[in-house]
Write a protein that binds this DNA or RNA. Sequence first.
DNA 1: GCTTGACCTCAACCTTACTTGATATCGGAC
DNA 2: GTCCGATATCAAGTAAGGTTGAGGTCAAGC
Lengths: 150, 150
Amino acid sequence: MHKGLSIGFVARRTGLAVSAIRYYEEEGLVQPGRDRGGRRVFQRGDIRRLSFVLIAQRLGFALADIRAALDDLPQGRNPTRADWARLAEGFRQEIDSRIDGLTLLRDKLDGCIGCGCLSLDRCALYNPNDKAATRGEGPRYLMGDRSDEF
Amino acid sequence: MHKGLSIGFVARRTGLAVSAIRYYEEEGLVQPGRDRGGRRVFQRGDIRRLSFVLIAQRLGFALADIRAALDDLPQGRNPTRADWARLAEGFRQEIDSRIDGLTLLRDKLDGCIGCGCLSLDRCALYNPNDKAATRGEGPRYLMGDRSDEF
DNA sequence: GCTTGACCTCAACCTTACTTGATATCGGAC
DNA sequence: GTCCGATATCAAGTAAGGTTGAGGTCAAGC
């Protein structure tokens, strides 16, 4: 049977808007087939792919990154438990490194509270070495390494 | 003396692009004066304001949120150590709550690795209750509470 | 007195992650 | 046979956070 799933069904199951799913197809995150009438036909595995997208987005990943991760999964066959476990492990590491980054930042901040300097050279908060907490790009020329005071 | 600082100077000191600083002015994050010729005149305190913006952005805050935080600071006088300490304390709490959220997420993920279910109803990762890790809005209809399996 | 660099404004463009609207077609119910 | 809901495409719009370019001005150096 596996007759395939309609976009509306997938939308209801994932909580995504139909338009979002179509957009994700454009972005290469899912590749549904088509029936004779031209309508998208999804497999159950696609729901998992989309679920993965949702989770990864919560973690702050850009769609491009998510696509890269998903490219490791088989498009043809349904992913196995081991496939997902591998992806989840990658997530775990990412989460760990974010926690580490934030912890570092917090410790520095503790040192800074009361200091109030926020000096570009002296303040530990500006140290560009811990990127773990960075999200997106921010200003283009972020964190230049100046050496005089202000 | 305090003759005021040019936008170029401030740009070099903060590492921001001149265009970014002008944009931040538009957004109300800084309010430089003008000289007779119409050029922006910044104070040293403005560098701190902008530094604050940079740090807050690293933490994933939107400019609107940052403006709100900065509105607590005096625009006229230079901020005191206590002013900054207050802001930093707010940061610390935000960082703490993010760490908590990520830790929760990691624990759940640990339970999920190997399970591979990613089921919308069963998988703990979908629990919408811990928003700490959320950044931006994500898909509009994120995390609907469906009750059947897939 | 003229050039040059830094500055000004304003409008347009960029990317990401979508939504919205117009217009058209498919296919099952009646 | 017709109607309706779900689907399709394509273009345009939205929001955030900026950058880029055109065209013009200011002030210091030679």
